[in-house]
Deep mutational scan, measured.
Amino acid sequence: HNLTITQGKLFFHYNPKLCLSEIHKMEEVSGTKGRQERNDIALKTNGDQASCENELLKFSYIRTSFDKILLRWEPYWPPDFRDLLGFMLFYKEAPYQNVTEFDGQDACGSNSWTVVDIDPPLRSNDPKSQNHPGWLMRGLKPWTQYAIFVKTLVTFSDERRTYGAKSDIIYVQTDATNPSVPLDPISVSNSSSQIILKWKPPSDPNGNITHYLVFWERQAEDSELFELDYCLKGLKLPSRTWSPPFESEDSQKHNQSEYEDSAGECCSCPKTDSQILKELEESSFRKTFEDYLHNVVFVPRKTSSGTGAEDPRPSRKRRSLGDVGNVTVAVPTVAAFPNTSSTSVPTSPEEHRPFEKVVNKESLVISGLRHFTGYRIELQACNQDTPEERCSVAAYVSARTMPEAKADDIVGPVTHEIFENNVVHLMWQEPKEPNGLIVLYEVSYRRYGDEELHLCVSRKHFALERGCRLRGLSPGNYSVRIRATSLAGNGSWTEPTYFYVTDYLDVPSNIA
């Protein structure tokens, strides 16, 4: 807008934040220059609390790290170098490059900038070799853009010569660093050979998330399962459950009422301010606690030095998902009996873990797994792929695949051998790939016309006998059925096997 004052003059007093240069501009645009008398524009009460600059400061050096910015700028000295009290560095987070010096300023003089007072450097006698002032900004957020400017702080001049310097606002972004852990990993099994893994992005990506790394490792069953005799009275049979499938998407929606109208769909109840505040506090606490764990609990591995020492970490090797089922080394339970199943799973520490690289999504279907087997899954978020990966501390989750139908069934015939004193040795093959492992066998036998009897055969007993022995049988026709019990439950009964026990007292003698 054009402003013209045809008559009258300007009068400025007691404006401590208004620089004289701005008042002189007002004289020019209003056409009143030359009308004012000496005392109409006070030299001592206008701009006496402001830094009124008329020179431009330029930054000469900028260096960044993930949490620091090192700045240096060209030296500046007023005509009387004693008038320079120091520099004021202003900075704040700036997602967009549209910041002005006066953003967030209120009537009390406060604003949204963080201000650092910096002492002037030592003055050199040689004007050509003056030290460049600077400042190291610490405690910054990774991968965050900051708006920065600097200006001088000078003393009051009796001659009211307006001098000083100020830089333009520059924008500097800190470097990326390792992201925080992925949030809320959930693993479920939808079949006997697959596990579905879902997660949420890290709360602090500290860069642009480029991919996720998912490692999985087959877990050995508890050692007590191999040692305890679950045929003993009072000892509860062990059981394991597989990871249940995901709930429906509708039930997972946030901010939804727990109660549904019987007449149909209901609208979600909005969260109160107290609920939102509580969630923010919980989120802040979780982030602080995660940072504490990362800094205190997890110790970084030592990389190899120039002395030739090897990095103890196993090298990563990509495998196809079809090879995942046989990740671990199978060892027989008892070496003397080769027909026992290889369900003991000690994992070799030198073995390469299978892994998958996930790009542009937060889910993965891990296939080719062994049925009813526990897996430990390790999830890392990465925001750099080359020249070397920059990934987060791992988040861990466990899951067990679903049982395989008929995996616990005894394959092959049940054979028998009759000894003296009416002892019958029953023999059968253990299931080759049971659900988890076989903890015991149930032997059901009966003599024709009598009630059915049951015998429990422990895992250890089966390994020693290759089956079991029935003792003290009365003469007669017998039928026997056997079924295995694994961590997933009972298998199917075998087809009945028949044998006849004679009275050993009636056996004919070869003595003449």
Rank of each mutant, 00 (worst) to 15 (best):
Ser486Gly: 15
Arg447Asn: 07
His371Cys: 08
Asp229Arg: 01
Asn435Ile: 00
Pro314Leu: 05
Glu389Gln: 10
Lys233Tyr: 12
Arg446Pro: 00
Leu379Tyr: 03
Ser492Val: 09
Tyr396Trp: 15
Asn206Leu: 01
Asn360Glu: 11
Gly325Pro: 13
Val359Trp: 08
Asn383Val: 03
His371Gly: 11
Asp250Ala: 08
Lys317Gln: 11
Asp273Tyr: 14
Leu237Glu: 15
Glu258Pro: 14
Ser486Ile: 00
Glu221Leu: 14
Arg301Ser: 02
Arg313Trp: 15
Asn477Met: 14
Glu378Arg: 06
Arg240Gln: 13
Leu277His: 07
Pro338Phe: 12
Glu279Ala: 03
Arg376Asp: 06
Phe337Cys: 10
Ser479Gly: 14
Tyr504Glu: 13
Lys317Ala: 09
Cys382Arg: 01
Ile438Tyr: 03
Cys456Val: 05
Thr303Trp: 07
Phe372Asp: 04
Gln275Pro: 03
Glu388Phe: 11
Ser474Gln: 08
Arg471Asn: 08
Pro338Asp: 08
Tyr375Gly: 08
Asp385Gly: 12
Arg353Lys: 10
Glu356Met: 12
Ser479Ala: 15
Thr333Pro: 03
Ser262Asn: 06
Ser284Gly: 04
Val424Leu: 11
Val334Asn: 08
Glu420Pro: 14
Asn208Arg: 13
Phe355Lys: 11
Thr401Pro: 15
His371Lys: 06
Val214Met: 04
Val397Arg: 13
Pro475Ile: 09
Ser203Thr: 11
Gly467Glu: 03
Arg318Asp: 11
Val480Ala: 07
Gly489Val: 09
Glu452Pro: 15
Arg353Gly: 15
Ser392Lys: 02
Glu224Asn: 15
Val480Gly: 05
Val214Asp: 01
Leu505Tyr: 15
Glu378Thr: 09
Arg483Glu: 00
Lys317Asn: 10
Lys278Met: 09
Cys456Gln: 03
Ile438His: 01
Pro403Ala: 01
Asp229Pro: 00
Thr333Asn: 07
Tyr292Met: 05
Lys236Phe: 02
Leu437Asn: 11
Asp261Thr: 12
Thr307Lys: 12
Gln252His: 10
Glu420Arg: 06
Glu217Phe: 08
Ser283Leu: 12
Glu378Ser: 07
Ser458Ala: 09
Lys460Glu: 10
Pro238Glu: 03
Gly207Lys: 03
Cys269Pro: 04
Leu213Phe: 03
Ser398Asn: 13
Asp408Asn: 15
Thr288Ile: 15
Gln380Ile: 15
Asn206Thr: 02
Tyr498Gln: 06
Pro431Leu: 04
Phe226Met: 06
Thr494Phe: 00
Cys468Thr: 07
Ser367Leu: 10
Gly325Ser: 14
Gly467Gln: 07
Ile418Val: 12
Gln219Tyr: 15
Lys432Pro: 09
Glu404Leu: 08
Glu279Leu: 11
Ile209Gly: 15
Lys361Leu: 11
Gly207His: 02
Ser320Met: 11
Glu388Pro: 08
Arg313Asp: 07
Ser223Arg: 12
Arg446Trp: 05
Pro300Met: 12
Ser223Glu: 14
Ile418Leu: 11
Ala399Gln: 06
Ser344Gly: 06
Cys269Phe: 09
Ser342Arg: 13
Asp323His: 15
Asp222Cys: 14
Val423His: 14
Ala463Lys: 11
Pro434Trp: 00
Ser274Leu: 07
Thr373Gln: 04
Gln380Val: 12
Tyr441Gln: 01
Phe285Asp: 02
Asn255Arg: 07
His416Ile: 10
Asn295Ser: 04
Pro238Asn: 07
Gly436Thr: 13
Asn326Ala: 10
Ala220Gly: 14
Pro434Ser: 07
Pro431Ala: 12
Lys406Thr: 10
Thr347Asn: 06
Glu378Val: 09
His425Asp: 04
Leu369Trp: 02
Glu351Gln: 12
Asp323Trp: 09
Ser257Gly: 07
Val331Leu: 11
Asn339Trp: 10
Phe215Glu: 09
Cys267Val: 06
Gly306Cys: 11
Ala463Trp: 11
Val443Leu: 09
Leu437Asp: 15
Val393Leu: 02
Leu228Glu: 15
Thr502Asp: 02
Ala263Ile: 11
Gly325Phe: 09
Glu389Arg: 11
Val439Asn: 04
Tyr375Arg: 01
Tyr448Leu: 09
Val329Gly: 12
Tyr212Ala: 04
Arg459Phe: 05
Tyr441Val: 12
Leu426Phe: 04
Arg469Pro: 03
His425Tyr: 09
Pro354Trp: 12
Val327Trp: 15
Gly234Ala: 07
Tyr500Met: 05
Pro349Met: 12
Glu430Met: 15
Leu235Arg: 06
Lys278Arg: 08
Pro431Phe: 03
Arg466Val: 05
Asp503Arg: 13
Ser262Phe: 11
Tyr212Cys: 04
Asp409Arg: 15
Glu282Thr: 05
Thr307Tyr: 08
Phe372Trp: 05
Ser486Val: 01
Gly436Ser: 13
Gln219Ala: 12
Thr415Gly: 10
Phe462Ile: 04
Asn435Gly: 02
Ile438Asn: 04
Pro496Cys: 14
Ala263Val: 11
Phe298Leu: 03
Ser257Met: 04
Ala263Gln: 13
Gly368Tyr: 04
Arg447Gln: 13
Met427Phe: 13
Glu265Ala: 14
Tyr500Thr: 10
Tyr445Met: 10
Ser341Thr: 11
Cys468Gln: 04
Ser509Thr: 10
Asn422Met: 08
Tyr445Lys: 05
His211Arg: 15
Leu379Asp: 00
Thr386Met: 13
Ala407Ser: 07
Glu351Phe: 10
Val345Leu: 13
Val324Leu: 09
Leu487Cys: 09
Phe289Glu: 02
Thr497Pro: 01
Ile366Gln: 05
Asp261Phe: 05
Ser458Arg: 06
Ser203Arg: 15
